[in-house]
């Protein structure tokens, strides 16, 4: 964290550089960072540790441990709980599988749409209006997004705008979130709608940061617009793209509010995701079990975080 901020002789391993900082400024440095460490310990490390401990126990309504059961919660989660992971059928189903679906579809769609809009909007005169419109959903709470899209998907064509449209074209109304085969896609699309603005704003800002001269030079050299995008803009955008991807991934692993409000994991558990399962199990009095689910969620997020931190470090050091 602080290592890169301190100028040190180039070429020396970072670990040593940090320790030399402490040797020189030991107590002082510790005093400076101790409030931050205390906050992190109280607000992040402590709940994390406590949740991990709980995941090996049965808890009562007051979250007091009634029995230590080792890895039973985890075994149950991965082998017995078919709403969490069901490998009996193909394709596999369950909350974990749904989260993977979300990670792939939501992340790539939000990113691609955001990139597309950022690049295209830069080429029109009403760019700011265009971007403002795409960004508005970002300012809406996810619960409100859920209500809005509930009305869009509503099965009754008199209420649901999407079904009003499809019936106008002569098709039968579709109960988008009442069907196991459509519910996840309907939800993912609603969330993409709410997140594209974020991807667009970050990528658009990064795009503006690319020097006009570089692009002009490329044009003079005979590059067409696609080449400029493919060989100049895209490589220069790789860091912001990585940042946005990480943010989207983390956001989607913990996706909760939209689903909780729109379908509550239904129908028949078809749209369950990890976080919804966790809250439901907690409500059902399964404190230890839901702690185990929380730990699984945390373990999923850690590799992404590690990647992110590594990435930042390498960018700082080389750039």
């Amino acid at each position: 964290m602080s290592s890169t901020a301190v100028p040190g002789p180039v070429g020396r391993p970072r670990g040593r550089r940090l320790s030399s900082v402490f040797r020189r400024q030991g107590v002082q440095a510790f005093l400076f960072i101790s409030p931050a460490i205390l906050l992190l310990a109280v607000l992040i490390v402590y709940p994390m540790v406590r949740t991990s401990i709980y995941s090996f126990a049965n808890l009562n309504s007051r979250l007091e441990v009634t029995r230590w059961i080792g890895f039973d919660n985890y075994t149950r989660l991965f082998t017995k709980d078919k709403s969490f992971l069901n490998l009996d059928e193909f394709p596999p189903s369950g909350a974990l599988v749904n989260n993977v679906k979300w990670m792939i579809l939501y992340t790539s769609l939000s990113l691609l749409l955001g990139l597309l809009i950022a690049v295209l909007a830069a080429r029109v005169r009403y760019e700011s209006l265009m971007k403002a419109i795409v960004f508005v959903p970002m300012a809406i709470a996810a619960t409100a997004v859920a209500i809005i899209w509930k009305f869009v998907y509503e099965p009754d064509p008199n209420l649901g705008s999407l079904n009003a449209f499809t019936t106008m074209l002569g098709a039968d109304p579709i109960a988008w979130y009442g069907r196991a085969d459509t519910v996840n896609y309907a939800l993912i699309f609603a969330y993409v709608w709410a997140s594209t603005g974020f991807a667009m704003v970050v990528l658009s800002a990064a795009l503006k940061g690319i020097s006009e001269e570089v692009i002009e030079a490329a044009r003079t050299d005979g590059a067409n617009e696609w080449d400029i995008f493919r060989r100049i803009q895209l490589p220069l955008l790789s860091l912001p793209i990585a940042v946005v991807t990480v943010w989207l991934l983390v956001n989607v692993i913990k996706v909760f509010d939209l689903i909780y409000v729109m379908t509550g994991g239904g129908p028949g558990g078809a749209s369950e995701v990890i976080a919804v399962t966790m809250v439901d199990e907690f409500g059902n009095g399964e404190g230890g079990y839901s702690a185990a689910i929380a730990v699984v969620m945390l373990l999923l997020i850690i590799p992404i975080m590690v990647f992110n931190i590594r990435r930042f470090r390498s960018e700082r050091v080389t750039g």
Binding site: E154, P155, D156, P173, A175, G178, R179, G266, G268
Partner: peptide
């Protein structure tokens, strides 16, 4: 009304 899909959607 609307079949099971609708029943599970409202």
């Amino acid at each position: 009304a609307g079949g099971i899909d609708t029943a599970l959607g409202i």
